[in-house]
Computed example of a mutant assay.
Amino acid sequence: MHQPLVFIDGDQGTTGLQIHARLHGRHDLRLLTLPEDQRKDPRQRAEAINSADVAILCLPDDAARDAVASIRNPAVRVIDASSAHRTSPGWVYGLPELDGQQAERIARSTRVSNPGCYPTGAIALLRPLVQAGLLPADFPLAIHAISGYSGGGRAAVERHEQADAHGLAGVQLYGLDLAHKHVPEIQQHAGLGERPVFVPGYGHYRQGIVLSIPLQLRLLPPGVTPEHLQQCLERHYQGARHVQLAPLHQDGAAAALDPQALNHTNDLRLALYANPAHGQVVLTAVFDNLGKGASGAAVQNLDLMLGAMQEQSPARKTG
């Protein structure tokens, strides 16, 4: 039986290391890694990519584009964990729960763009509601999210884990020029007609995201209630292995959300908190920025691809 060869380009970065760890010890695939002295050699990297069945790119955007441009073997399939191709034509967006057909599209695609961490939570909450007509595409949205510092890459990890890191702020907002690179991705894949306001931040903890989106019920279509929003998400995610939907919380104190609650998993937990008397709702998502927000999602997409490859392998042998 053919064991697919998987090459992780950039396996020494935060996401690449996590993907490598998640794949370590598996017997249904072979991992290709380059020696340290070859990792930055364009010729060696191109050779590795073109020899792989699946290449997972954990690179800066420009380097990811160069890596894709180096592919000459039409059989190579790519999962790009950078943001280089998330809104590009010809690339399948790697969120299997996007709709009922997305997992199959990913499985059959040769070019898959892994979602960004923040967009994973935002799109998971917004897209079903927009598609169902419960949330207008031009709604004046504000998205707030706090991530563990590992979301800032190796430099942020080193800064927060050095001996004198106790002097760093417990929470620090950034992206205050309101031009964060994740916004076009959120807008396109959530089906929004207007650009949302996105305010991200880093907390002084390693990993995990809590994301929230406030809504005013009076600005939704007439008659839309928190129950309608909840039922829409229940229908959309029925049977979804990696998405949990909490019961609707209304009219009372609710437990605080812990951004680290799903660390080291590939799960995404969604919840709605509503106060009908005040006409307000908050949509929330909790997940691991290194799990469902990065490496876990990449492995989920890889497994979809490998499943499709196994289905096709008998045809290749007899052809």
Rank of each mutant, 00 (worst) to 15 (best):
M1I: 13
M1C: 13
L5F: 04
V6K: 02
D9P: 14
Q12G: 15
G13Y: 08
L17C: 14
A21P: 04
R22I: 14
H24P: 14
A46C: 14
N50H: 02
D53R: 05
L59W: 03
P60C: 06
A67Y: 11
I71D: 03
V78D: 08
V78L: 10
A84P: 09
G94H: 10
G94A: 12
E97N: 08
Q101F: 11
R108K: 12
T110C: 14
T110N: 14
P115F: 05
G116W: 06
P119L: 02
P119T: 00
T120H: 00
P128F: 04
L134Q: 04
P136R: 00
D138S: 06
R154G: 13
A155C: 11
H160W: 15
H160V: 13
A163F: 14
D164G: 14
H166S: 10
V171D: 03
A179V: 09
V183R: 05
E185W: 11
Q187F: 00
Q187N: 01
Q188A: 10
H189D: 11
G193F: 05
E194S: 11
P200W: 02
Y202I: 07
Y205I: 01
Y205M: 00
L211Y: 02
L217H: 04
L219V: 10
P226M: 05
Q230F: 05
C232P: 04
R235K: 12
R235L: 09
G239E: 07
A240M: 05
R241G: 10
R241K: 14
R241F: 13
A246T: 03
P247S: 08
L262T: 03
P276H: 03
P276F: 08
A277S: 09
H278C: 12
V282Y: 00
T284Q: 04
S295Q: 02
A298K: 07
D303R: 04
M305W: 08
L306S: 04
G307T: 04
P314I: 01
T318E: 14
G319Q: 14
